[in-house]
Design a protein around this nucleic acid. Structure first.
Lengths: 196, 196
DNA sequence: TGTACATCAGTGAACGCGCGTTCACTGATGTAC
DNA sequence: TGTACATCAGTGAACGCGCGTTCACTGATGTAC
């Protein structure tokens, strides 16, 4: 049955929110659209009124994950090293390691996205670009003479460490708990030392 | 029909070799056992004479990927910085970025493995442990007083950068080619500088 | 060495299942009068 | 403001397809004599 325009918009948001969480938690190939729609309180048929295809749906869900995942970093004022440090500490925490559904879309989905065609890799790349830009703006440059390329590279390396460290920590968590936490703290210490 | 024992062993190897390459290229959920068996020149039914399940098959394929992917590093003598440097340069090359099938199993499969139960996460973790051990042994310690924990952490951070950098590079390759190569070179430069 | 036959690696049809997508239908919304 | 009805968001059955796994069967291997 028809619903009000506001209700339809709410349903669309609920579909995106469920997809954003479930794709991060299970992977793009780890859950079907019917199950996601059910989680959002709707049926799978309604999806195709809002989105062209699973790929377009997944891309929008991915974009939403970036908006949510980067809001903390975006709200940290440039120069506010305490806020930046808190962001790094949370990113490299066991809480984040164990909370795929609410976690970083890059760590959860970039490897899978790299194998895809269509709208998902575009959204993923735009998210990575934004992540790099926000980091670069907020990471104090230890060498005032450093040129633009150097500060860009520093942000790229920092993001690489964060994403790689989180993935290694997650991959080893169920088998070697000690290694899993060592990766997180080793990366965090390295970032905090270079930032000081 | 029955085949000779040597032929059966060859077939088993062919099945593992095809799975090792195809799972890295497409992901564990990106290709089915029937297609892998066909690639190996056999039918899917024959798989279950060699392996208990898809998961056990995937885990053995993953182990093979580690043996192949780490042979270069293992053959680098401890203290041979030129060989270690060559390993890093190849790992962070566009060749490796574009060659998923023959590339690092961690970068290709660790994120997916982290979401699984069963034998795959165990094999993945053992592979990561071996990778860290080989790196740690071969990375010259710049501070002779550094304790064991510090050198372990250095290896963990280096591996995190490598894996994260490769994943970011692959994820952005089709959309932002410049960013894709910048990540690789930024990570490589950082590793080479810290090693010097 | 030659023959008879038990073994067993590999084949391919069949299974139940979940996938993404389509579409005729339903019925509340919201507009036209 | 009240009524008639066109619109259209959502439903759920149905589609073809590929998945992992099983199993009766095939026929070459390799052993027993």
């Amino acid at each position: 049955m028809k619903v009000s325009k506001e209700q339809a918009e709410q349903n669309r948001s609920a579909l995106l929110d469920a997809a954003s969480r479930l794709y991060r938690e299970r992977g793009f190939d780890g859950i079907g659209v019917a199950q996601i729609a059910r989680e959002a309180g709707l049926t799978h048929g309604s999806l195709y009124g809002h989105f062209d295809s699973k790929e377009h749906y997944a891309a929008e869900a991915c974009a939403l994950a970036f908006v949510q995942g980067l809001s903390g970093l975006r709200q940290a004022e440039i120069g506010d090293d305490a806020a930046l440090g808190a962001f790094f500490r949370d990113y490299l925490s066991q809480r984040h390691r164990d909370d795929l559904a609410e976690g970083c879309a890059v760590a959860a989905l970039a490897a899978e996205s790299a194998r895809k065609d269509g709208p998902v890799p575009l959204t993923m790349t735009r998210g990575i670009e934004t992540f790099v830009k926000l980091l670069r703006e907020r990471m104090a440059d230890p060498d005032a003479d450093a040129d633009a390329a150097a500060s860009h590279d520093r942000a790229l390396v920092t993001l690489s460490m964060m994403v790689g460290g989180l993935i290694l920590s997650r991959a080893s968590a169920s088998v070697n708990a000690e290694l899993s936490v060592q990766v997180l703290s080793a990366v965090l210490n390295t970032i905090e030392e270079q930032g000081a």
